[in-house]
Design a protein around this nucleic acid. Structure first.
Length: 473
RNA sequence: CGGGGCGUAGCGCAGCUUGGUAGCGCACUUGCUUUGGGAGCAAGGGGUCGGGGGUUCGAAUCCCUCCGCCCCGACCA
């Protein structure tokens, strides 16, 4: 085990790696680019799943599961889609010891195989809309990988829907984007900027891609969820047709939307500090840890006092009593701080005598004695406050690192760290030049902004778009 | 794919220049003492030195070769 966590300011990448190791979230697998998600990390994923499943069901979606392997001919159906994904597809060519007649792709995403099934299932306008989601793993052969942020295999959910009209499909696309915003801001306490992707950054095969962009602690952007309006591109490629009320056969309009374990990487980078993780209470595997402090002769008395408190809190919160005899209290404080547990209660003889406990907040580091009576209410308030404080701190960071510019060169004085906002003429050439010169890419065209009319930040020509650009993960 | 670095105990490393019984710290096991911010003492266990080949009486160390990992670039939902 590492003894210390590298300070963020010294080396942000090393800090990130140290934190995920110290927090016991992941381990590197024996295959390059793959990782094992350990129970403490996986539990966070389960909370995200719970929150999303609630929202998906409330909007009429059902979970289903489609195959891991996709026959090559299906993957080839949609031209842009193949072109976008083929460089990173892993292929299965042998099964049961025999070479396969047709090689099988390990899914990089499931539009193709789901589209082929939808075409069988849909006959009439009465079969629409089809609203499904699947929780799965996907594989994209990446050259540079980092735990959670970009791994060869990752876990995600992918929603796939078919609609009767373009309007309904567009509405679905926006509705799902809003669900992501809600879960990511309310549960993970990560503020995001919703926007539309520029043509160059669009999902392969989509008509429009919408995104949520978050700003990390080091000033780089992270695309944290996307929702795609696919038009009739996939409906045509997979022959998804229905007979409409007017007796005419028509192509359906499809959408897809996804969010992955990358969100956990965002969670770490947005909230973590030099002591380790800081977990937002709503997705914290352990919300309250209680550390009893007692010499041998007092152990029994303290333990009884702690048990009462733990029982009361355990009815409402996720509580852990750390009574491991082999570690000192100081060790335990550090240990749980690395794991980001929002509230720590230190309980010894002094507290017992005062009928109180010492409450330490992970977000602020503040330590205050609080009465044992009404402890559940106190903890409830503090957890709410921590959830709120983490979001506010992240929002402050985002706001203070968002700069409006009239020319992209102004970003240089900020070291290209942060979100930069400016006008864009809409031409891909300017986007390319921006990237070439600065390493920054267009993160999105924010939904609620209009061009200021100051001219494209790259070429100065009349602008049609307002864009958010940054260096990204 | 280009440039650089590294593979020695679970983790982090020394040893290699100049070949001669494989070491240190942490972790682990046992016992005793400890416990309000990373406890102490004592006794233990743990290694095909990344793989293969060569030189040599003898290779972690020298030579050849293969493999893997990390960082920087390029590429990228």
């Amino acid at each position: 085990m590492l003894k210390e966590i590298t300070p963020k300011s010294q080396d942000y990448s090393q800090w990130y790696v140290d934190v995920i190791k110290k927090a016991d979230m992941v381990d590197y697998a024996p295959i390059k680019g793959f990782m094992v998600i350990k129970p403490y990390g996986y539990r966070i994923w389960e909370f995200i799943q719970d929150a999303m499943n609630r929202e998906f069901r409330a909007t009429g979606h059902e979970n289903a599961y489609f195959p891991l392997l996709i026959p090559e001919n299906l993957l080839l159906r949609e031209a842009e889609h193949v072109e976008g994904f083929s460089p990173e597809v892993a292929w299965v060519t042998i099964g049961g010891g025999e070479p396969l007649a047709e090689r099988l792709a390990v899914r990089p995403t499931s539009e193709t195989i789901i589209g082929s099934m939808y075409s069988k299932w849909i006959q009439s306008y009465r079969d629409l809309p089809v609203l499904m989601n699947q929780w799965s793993n996907v594989v994209r052969w990446e050259k540079a990988t980092r735990p959670f942020l970009r791994t060869t295999e990752f876990l995600w959910q992918e929603g796939h829907t078919v609609h009767r009209t373009a309007e309904e499909a567009e509405q679905e696309t926006m509705q799902q984007l809003e669900i992501y915003r809600k879960v990511i801001e309310d549960e993970l306490a990560i503020p995001v900027v919703p926007g539309r992707k520029s043509a160059g950054e669009r999902f392969a095969g989509a008509v429009e891609t919408y995104t949520l962009e978050a700003l990390m602690g080091d000033g780089r952007a992270l695309q944290i969820a996307t929702s795609h309006f696919l038009g009739q591109n996939f409906a045509k490629a997979f022959d998804i047709q229905y007979l409409d009320e007017d007796g005419v056969r028509k192509y359906g309009w499809t959408t897809s939307w996804g969010a992955s374990t990358r969100m956990i990487g965002g969670l770490i980078m947005v909230h973590g500090d030099d002591k380790g993780l800081r977990m937002p209470p709503r997705v914290a595997p352990i919300q309250v840890v209680i550390v009893p402090i007692a010499k041998n002769k007092d152990a029994e008395a303290v333990s009884a006092y702690v048990k009462n408190i733990a029982d009361e809190l355990g009815r409402e919160f996720r509580v852990r009593v750390d009574d491991r005899p082999e570690f000192t209290p100081g060790y335990k404080y550090n240990d749980w701080e690395m794991r980001g547990v929002p509230i720590r209660l230190e309980v010894g003889l002094r507290d017992m005598a005062n009928q109180s406990v010492m409450l330490a907040r992970r977000d602020t580091g503040e330590k205050t004695p609080v009465p044992a009576a009404g402890i559940a209410e106190t903890v409830r308030q503090r957890l709410d406050d921590i959830q709120h404080t983490l979001f506010q701190q992240a929002l402050e960071h985002q706001k203070s690192h968002t700069v409006v510019v009239e020319n992209y060169r102004q970003a240089e004085e900020y070291g290209y760290r942060g979100f930069f906002e400016g006008d864009w003429c809409g031409r891909g050439g300017c986007a390319d030049q921006l990237k070439e010169a600065t390493g920054m890419t267009i993160r999105c065209l924010p939904l609620d902004r209009q061009p200021l009319g100051t001219g494209c930040v790259v070429c100065g020509q009349p602008s049609t778009e307002r864009m958010l650009f940054a260096r990204a993960y």
